[in-house]
């Protein structure tokens, strides 16, 4: 193939708060998922001391709750940033507002998932499908925080848990809340696999520095593509 000469523009897409949110969120969810799984399936401890000298399960739960708080505050911060941050981080990026979105989403599906067409539209921030999925994801975050804090409420004196307890009767009791909270773990596992894969995929196929963008904030876009859009 003959090398072609194109020029790229460097665009500052992800501001620091977005990047910070992203990695704190990823870390919190990883910790929450691991500790949550242990809470759901405590492993047996072969050598055991008397209960009064041992607190490992309590510690696991403590880490889960601590990560839960970080997760919540981080999420609230991101929502705030959706109103004050740059265009790429604005809340409007997540919600389909016009008809052309639907077309864009179909387009992305064709290009990246079904791969029935080879070239597609270029989005500097999230593509439309990703934006919509993140929108759903945020609701899942909210749901997980609500169910988590509702379960946490009886063990906590802080008001935060109490704010979530209204969800319990709606979901039909604590056991259902716990069941749904636990089940959601698998949503995160599935999301993380697909998400990380797609980030690498885009980087590999498009070479726009998608992966590193979440670290440094910069993306690279071809001048000619940018002009077209």
């Amino acid at each position: 193939m003959t090398p072609t000469s194109v020029s790229y523009r460097r665009i500052y897409v992800w501001e620091l708060p977005v990047r910070a949110f992203h990695w704190i969120n990823a870390a919190a969810i990883t910790v929450l998922g691991l500790t949550g799984f242990i809470i759901g399936h405590p492993f047996s401890v072969a050598y055991t001391q008397e209960a009064s000298f041992q607190y490992w399960f309590g510690t696991v739960r403590f880490i889960h709750f601590l990560a839960g708080y970080i997760f919540l505050i981080n999420m609230l911060m991101r929502i705030y940033w959706g109103f004050v941050g740059n265009a790429y981080s604005n809340w409007k990026e997540f919600i389909p507002t016009s008809r052309s979105w639907i077309g864009d989403i179909k387009e992305v599906l064709k290009v990246d998932i079904l791969q029935t067409s080879v070239h597609g539209p270029v989005h500097v921030g999230h593509n439309r499908l990703a934006g919509l999925i993140y929108f759903g994801t945020f609701w899942m975050f909210l749901f997980q925080a609500l169910t988590g804090f509702a379960l946490y409420a009886p063990m906590s004196r802080l008001f935060v848990g109490k704010l979530a307890t209204w969800i319990v009767p709606i979901l039909g009791g604590d056991q259902n809340v716990r069941h749904l909270h636990h089940t959601m773990l698998w949503f995160y596992v599935a999301f993380a696999i697909v998400h990380v894969y797609l980030v690498f995929y885009h980087d590999y196929v498009e070479g726009r520095g998608t992966t590193s963008s979440m670290v440094g904030g910069w993306k690279f876009e071809r001048e000619d593509y940018l002009d077209k859009h």
């Binding site: 405590p42 047996s44 401890v45 055991t48 001391q49 209960a51 009064s52 000298f53 041992q54 607190y55 490992w56 399960f57 309590g58 696991v60 739960r61």
Partner: peptide
């Protein structure tokens, strides 16, 4: 409850 926190099940 102490056995729970201690992870003794």
């Amino acid at each position: 409850r102490p056995y729970y926190d201690a992870g003794l099940f």
